[in-house]
Computed example of a mutant assay.
Amino acid sequence: MNHATIRKALFAAALVTGLGAVPFAQVSAQDSAAKTSDNQTVPGKADDAWITTKVKSEFATKKAVHGSDISVTTTEGVVALTGSVTTAKEKTNAEKIAKAVKGVKSVDASGLTVAPAADAK
């Protein structure tokens, strides 16, 4: 394995560990039978947190997407992608990767804009 692959694998592991622990810790502190103000159950929020974390980690490990410029939010299984990508192909790849994650009902990439990177080679 080369250094870039190892670095990406370590980054993905850290991302999953770091981002995965926070939402679940917050959710477990709440009463699992309680409803939130947006009418989504706590188990549903935990599922959404897992989906968000999984999509972000998939972006981190794929060369086809530069996930650091993409924000991911999930509500009731619907993933919303916002931010910027450098090409239309990268936007399409981001949508495909997000749709492939287990539990994703649909992907809204309308907030994802195509803007060439300032440091493009």
Rank of each mutant, 00 (worst) to 15 (best):
N2R: 10
H3T: 05
A4L: 07
A4F: 00
T5C: 00
I6E: 07
R7N: 01
K8S: 01
L10N: 08
A12Y: 01
A13M: 13
A13S: 12
A14Y: 01
A14Q: 05
L15F: 01
V16W: 15
T17G: 14
G18K: 07
G18R: 05
L19C: 13
G20K: 12
A21I: 14
A21E: 03
A21C: 11
P23T: 09
P23Q: 10
F24G: 03
F24W: 14
Q26N: 15
V27I: 15
S28G: 07
S28A: 15
S28W: 12
A29C: 01
A29D: 12
Q30H: 07
S32D: 13
A33G: 15
A33P: 05
A34Q: 15
K35M: 15
K35Y: 09
D38V: 13
D38T: 11
T41S: 15
T41F: 07
V42L: 13
P43Q: 09
P43Y: 07
G44E: 15
G44L: 06
K45I: 12
A46L: 09
A46W: 09
D47G: 11
D47T: 14
D47N: 15
D48N: 12
W50G: 11
T53Y: 06
T53F: 04
V55S: 05
V55A: 09
V55P: 11
S57D: 08
S57C: 08
F59W: 00
K63G: 06
K63H: 04
K63W: 04
K63V: 02
A64M: 03
A64L: 03
H66Y: 10
S68L: 08
D69K: 11
D69A: 13
S71I: 00
V72H: 04
V72S: 02
V72G: 02
T73K: 13
T74R: 09
T75P: 01
G77A: 10
V78D: 10
V78Y: 06
V79H: 10
L81S: 09
L81H: 06
L81E: 08
G83M: 06
G83D: 05
G83K: 05
T86I: 02
T87P: 07
A88L: 11
K89S: 08
K89Y: 00
E90F: 02
E90I: 01
K91L: 01
K91E: 00
T92A: 13
N93E: 12
A94I: 00
E95Y: 00
E95Q: 10
E95G: 02
E95A: 01
I97Q: 07
A98K: 08
A98L: 10
A100L: 04
V104R: 07
S106N: 12
V107N: 03
V107M: 03
V107Y: 04
A109Q: 05
A109W: 04
A109F: 04
S110H: 10
G111H: 12
L112H: 07
V114R: 09
A115Y: 02
A120S: 12
